[in-house]
Nucleic acid binder design. Structure first.
Length: 883
DNA sequence: CGATATACGTA
DNA sequence: CGTACGTATATCGA
């Protein structure tokens, strides 16, 4: 609202301003880590939030061009024909910018065949007529014609988009000598180079203004053209057609048919969660507070009714609670409040019927039968709650839906991290949350009954939206897996502090010794853990040749150091590598040692309890945190000492490891149907030897180690979308040789290439890839104009069905093994999953049964056109068992 | 103190 | 210019 008391309508030309920002801001500083350029988006939004803050509009819209083609190009094919195609890097930013504006709940207007400025002109004209103060923000000079007492133009100055010049009628007269309505007349005479509209030769602004002042109007001037003297007069007479055409083209349309009226454009609360999401994707950080400052946080404006309508939970007595649960029909949503790993309070919701109770032996007794029945239950983020119940002696069954898992399956690239996020996204409501920074929070958080109620409602919406194949992955794979993971986390794995601490001391001493030698080589002490200081030593002091560039200088990673050692041998390089190795191993040991018995939710049992993050990857794999037990070293003899510290626990007989051999290549054989590859797996021959024989045209027995290494790298590289360049680099061979290798490979295994090509092509059409079991991963960037982005997406899309199918298969094997061990009454238990390997703790006397179960269930987890080969090992510790 | 960059462990 | 992860340290700016 302005001083005048009138509402203020701000209309913005998104295209022209983003375009200016695109050229004003260095692209290097505005790119995401996967290569999406964001300079135009950032520049526009930065200007836009400032503008909104400064002008406080009550109504707001942003208009965009749809394409280069418009009614003007129909009238005059040469219109803007001199403009070079706008760069692909810019075009790719427009949809993302529009996504940002949608999150801000700002109306975006486009119309086929109409330019953004015509939309602005129409809105400005109608707005002024409807009693608005209108602000037009555009980078196109033609919009000067829109300026009136009610319409002000904000035009970016040469300094950049952040500096806007205000054009009122007076300001226009001051600059051009004529009122705004005459500006198109001037422009018609002078011409507009940027629009490819030539004017009258030798006539500039001064002459044009003089003529127009003298003759009053353009029509009158044209009518009296024969009275103009001099060369310019002749030029005018020769170019009257151009002038008329220019004037016709530079008149903005003021009556474009739009879906909206100015009154429809009232400022609306932003969708804070959507803004956070898109800004996170674009890696904008500083912009978020500025947006909240200009547009509000969207919080206070959320539908209050929904918050008010949250049911209040009844708190029945324990026995009534049991009856309530048993009698409930359909899904019952459950929310267990967990403290110190144990349940403290519980909420249940069946529809809008909500109950809750403090956890007590009586409540547990009343509900156990129901908990352990098949009655369907919905729990958001179920695993920690399932674990808490198990610690309290209740084995939950009948888990039918977890909104967090469902949300991840639908959108694995950006999973919602909490029930609050899901409530925002699916219900467009706000989950009441206590402010954790306040000792006595002003706002009460939701009670467990209310949390359950929200979870149930989110689940209902998700069930409607979820694709059938994704729903089956949830029901048939993820939920059973969750159950197994809960037990694995509770079980933990025994790790010997004694074995670790001795080794750690040894490595510390070695690292110190190596460091001293390294310092002696360079005559000073530096921090060997600082890439920055190392760069000084290597490239300045020792003047070694510069290596691969990084953002902050030159790389000093192990591959680079090995290259340097070969080309410019220096004792320091080797010492540095040794130091890195020793300190790295020591770090790992120290963090493992610190993790023994450190699970706050479990008494110290001398074991490490990792947490598997079921939503931790985009492909369907698990991830492991606190600590990560999926990246324990194995490659060097020495590092295997760490694995030997993972031991069979007291009361158990031995560890069993079981891993799939070459599961990804087998999946590739299955998906591609390549006869050669399928034969390779059915022949019983070593895979790489078989492939090597085919590729190099020799007998399998004649495949040399060098040949085997090459085809092995090639085979694995295929799964990752490896190029000839990458292959040559990895194998340290010429690119021509790598290309030759690839050609030979595909000549023998052509169906593999056909499959890889067609699967990416299919993903481009569908927008997502799918595993054998129907798990999907979206790939919006496959159609990106940005080449880096697109090619990255292509490689990931190539890999996703393969890695994802392997993950599906392992999950199926895992929960089947877990279930069968239990149903057969065996005490043995699965402890760890490392993508294609399981570690099982085998109870005394159970080896034969367990070995059979693990081997068979892994082997028959999926029916492929090639067998699934499972290698089983046995030993008192992980290292021993791993052979 | 939090975010970023680099380096490195696994499948 | 090879996919998918998590974690440690150094460094820089708020």
């Amino acid at each position: 609202m302005t001083d005048s008391g009138k509402p203020t309508l701000l209309v913005v030309d998104g295209h022209s301003l983003a375009y200016r920002a695109f050229f004003a801001l260095p692209v290097d500083n505005f790119s995401t880590k996967d290569g999406q350029h964001t300079n135009g988006i950032y520049g526009f939004l930065s200007m836009f939030v400032n503008l909104v803050k400064a002008e406080q509009p009550t109504h707001l819209a942003v208009a965009f061009d749809t394409s280069r083609h418009s009614f003007r190009t129909d009238q005059y094919a040469e219109y803007k024909a001199n403009r070079s195609e706008s760069p692909a890097e810019f075009k790719g930013q427009i949809p993302l910018l529009q996504e940002c504006l949608a999150a801000l709940n700002v109306t975006v207007l486009t119309k086929e065949g109409i330019e953004a400025d015509d939309i602005l002109a129409t809105l400005a004209t109608r707005g002024a007529a409807d009693g608005f103060d209108v602000l037009v923000c555009s980078g196109d000079r033609d919009t000067i014609q829109l300026v009136t007492d009610d319409v002000t133009l904000l035009y970016p100055s040469v300094q950049g988009v952040s500096q806007l010049k205000r054009y009122t009628p007076d300001a226009v007269v001051e600059k051009y000598g004529l009122p705004p309505a005459n500006y198109p007349d001037i422009a018609a005479l002078v011409g507009e180079t940027s629009d490819n509209l030539p004017g009258v030769p030798k006539v500039g602004e001064k002459t044009a203004v003089k003529w127009l002042t003298q003759w009053g109007s353009l029509e009158n001037l044209i009518a009296n053209a024969d009275k103009i003297t001099g060369v310019v007069g002749g030029n005018l007479r020769d170019h009257l057609d151009d002038v008329t055409r220019n004037r016709s083209l530079n008149a903005l349309l003021r009556d474009v048919e739009l879906e909206v009226t100015p009154a429809d454009l009232a400022l609306r609360p932003i969708d804070a969660q959507a803004v956070r999401d898109i800004f996170a994707r674009l890696e904008f950080r500083t912009l978020l507070p500025r947006v909240f400052d200009s547009f509000g946080t969207g919080d206070d404006e959320l539908p209050a009714a929904a918050v008010v309508a949250i049911p209040t939970a009844a708190t029945p007595a324990a026995d009534a609670l049991g009856a309530w649960a048993t009698d409930a029909e359909g899904d019952v949503a459950v929310s267990v409040v967990v403290a110190g790993g144990l349940p403290t309070r519980i909420g249940l919701a069946a529809g809008d019927d909500v109950v809750e109770a403090d956890w007590s032996p009586e409540v547990a007794a009343a509900l156990t039968a129901w908990f352990e029945s098949d009655a369907p239950k919905v729990i958001a983020d179920a695993k920690p709650q399932v674990k808490a119940l198990r610690r309290a002696g209740v084995r939950l069954r009948g888990l039918a839906f977890d909104p967090l898992l469902a949300g991840w399956l639908e959108r694995p690239s950006f999973p919602d991290k909490s029930l609050a996020d899901l409530v925002q996204r699916h219900l467009d409501e706000k989950l009441p949350e206590a402010d954790p920074t306040q000792l006595v929070p002003e706002t009460e958080g939701a009670t467990p009954g209310q949390l359950a109620w929200f979870a149930g409602r989110v689940a209902a919406v998700q069930r409607d939206e979820i694709a059938p194949s994704v729903a089956s992955v949830l029901t048939d794979i993820e939920l059973p897996t969750l159950d197994a993971l809960a037990d694995m986390e509770l079980a933990g794995v025994a790790v010997s502090h004694e074995k670790l601490s001795g080794f750690s001391a040894e490595l510390l001493a070695r690292a110190d010794g190596v460091a001293r030698l390294a310092f002696a080589e360079i005559g000073r002490e530096v921090n060997l853990g600082s890439p920055k200081q190392l760069q000084e030593v290597l490239f300045d002091q020792l003047a070694l040749p510069k290596t691969r560039k990084t953002k902050t200088g030159y790389s000093t990673d192990a591959a680079v150091l090995a290259d340097l050692q070969e080309s410019n041998p220096h004792p320091f390089l080797d010492l540095l590598l040794q130091h890195r190795e020793a300190t790295k191993l020591r770090q790992i040991i120290e963090s493992l040692d610190a993790a023994i018995g450190n699970d706050r939710t479990t008494p110290d049992d001398g074991r490490i309890h990792t947490t598997y993050v079921q939503t931790g990857s985009q492909t369907g794999r698990l991830s492991s945190t606190d600590p990560n037990l999926q990246n324990i070293p194995i490659r060097t003899e020495e590092s295997r000492r760490i694995r030997s510290a993972f031991e069979v626990g007291a009361g158990y007989e031995t560890l069993l490891t079981a891993d799939y051999s070459q599961i990804e290549m087998r999946i590739m054989a299955h998906l591609s149907g390549d006869p050669g590859l399928i034969e390779a797996f059915n022949s019983g021959e070593d895979l790489h030897r078989f492939v090597g024989a085919r590729v190099f045209g020799v007998e399998p027995a004649e495949v040399t180690p060098a040949m085997r290494t090459k085809v092995k790298a090639m085979s694995y590289g295929l799964v990752y979308g490896l190029s000839a360049f990458g292959l040559s680099k990895q194998l340290r061979i010429e690119q021509s040789e790598a290309r030759q290798l690839m050609t030979e490979y595909f000549a023998r295994f052509g169906a593999v290439r056909d499959y890889l090509r067609s699967s990416v092509e299919q993903a481009r059409v569908d927008g997502y890839t799918e595993t054998i079991f129907g798990r999907r991963r979206p790939f919006p960037d496959l159609t990106s104009m940005n080449r880096v982005l697109r090619e990255n997406a292509e490689r990931a899309a190539l890999n996703a069905p393969i890695q994802g199918s392997a993950a599906d298969i392992m999950k199926i094997a895992l929960f089947r093994i877990h279930d069968q061990l239990r149903t057969e009454g065996l005490a043995s238990r699965v402890l760890l999953q490392i993508h294609d390997e399981l570690v099982v703790e085998v109870a005394t006397g159970e080896w034969d049964a367990v070995e059979r179960i693990v081997h068979d269930r892994m082997g028959d987890a999926a029916e492929l056109s090639v067998p699934l080969d499972v290698q089983v090992g046995r030993g008192a510790d992980w290292d021993e068992a791993g052979h």
